[in-house]
Nucleic acid binder design. Structure first.
Length: 191
DNA sequence: TGCCTGATTGCCT
DNA sequence: GGCAATCAGGCAA
């Protein structure tokens, strides 16, 4: 498996959303290492996508979305939840891919402790769930997936004939666009 | 300054 | 299937 390069994140955002499926997302913390295979993603397309935080231009919150591709955009929402994205496209574009679900691989006991839940299928089956399970916090906003030590991405993309597409979940604007990607038949996707 | 809404989750009926 | 929890961002005034 070839290591990821900056060029990976400069592919069209939809392509990155597809190719992130199958890769393993790893986080390190004092509690230990946790990881899982990405099984569900959603693409957010900057200024052309009313559902994207970056749609109305750069603000303090969306600064990292407009920053260097290959970095983490982490945001807080609903007064209690945090979600993790991978920034894509050239700086200034505002594109990102939301990581929506993982199949837990290592550090499962750590994730169960953080989530206060044992069922493996509900450990990382949602954007805010996997963030909690992996111990990702707002301080990880802007972290580089390529050179950082906290967050890493390794492995190979799943074969594209195993990828399914659907509209995105939980949005009201542009709700019909087929920008959600997931591994067909996976028992670890959200909902 | 005030109001409304949200890329969610989990509990309740 | 419905809805509360809980608060920061964004925009109107």
């Amino acid at each position: 498996m070839a290591p990821l390069t900056r060029a990976f994140f400069l592919q069209p955002t939809i392509e990155v959303a597809r190719q992130l499926l199958g890769l393993t997302l790893i986080t390190k913390s004092p509690a230990g290492e946790t990881s899982g295979v990405i099984v569900e993603t959603e693409a957010y397309l900057g200024s052309s996508d009313p559902a994207a935080h970056s749609y109305r231009g750069e603000t303090p919150r969306t600064k990292t979305m407009f920053g260097e591709p290959g970095r983490a955009y982490v945001y807080f929402t609903y007064g209690m939840h945090t979600c993790l994205n991978v920034v894509t496209a050239p700086s200034g574009t505002g594109d990102a891919v939301l990581i929506r679900a993982l199949e837990p691989t290592t550090g499962i006991d750590i994730m169960q402790r953080r989530r206060q839940r044992d069922d493996i299928h509900r450990l990382c089956s949602g954007p805010a769930k996997l963030v909690q399970a992996l111990g990702v916090t707002l301080t990880d906003n802007g972290q580089d997936f390529l050179s950082g030590s906290r967050l890493r991405l390794v492995g190979d993309s799943v074969e594209q004939d195993r990828v399914a597409v659907s509209p995105r979940i939980g949005i009201k604007k542009a709700a019909d666009l087929p920008l959600r990607f997931f591994i067909k038949g996976s028992k670890f996707v959200s909902r």
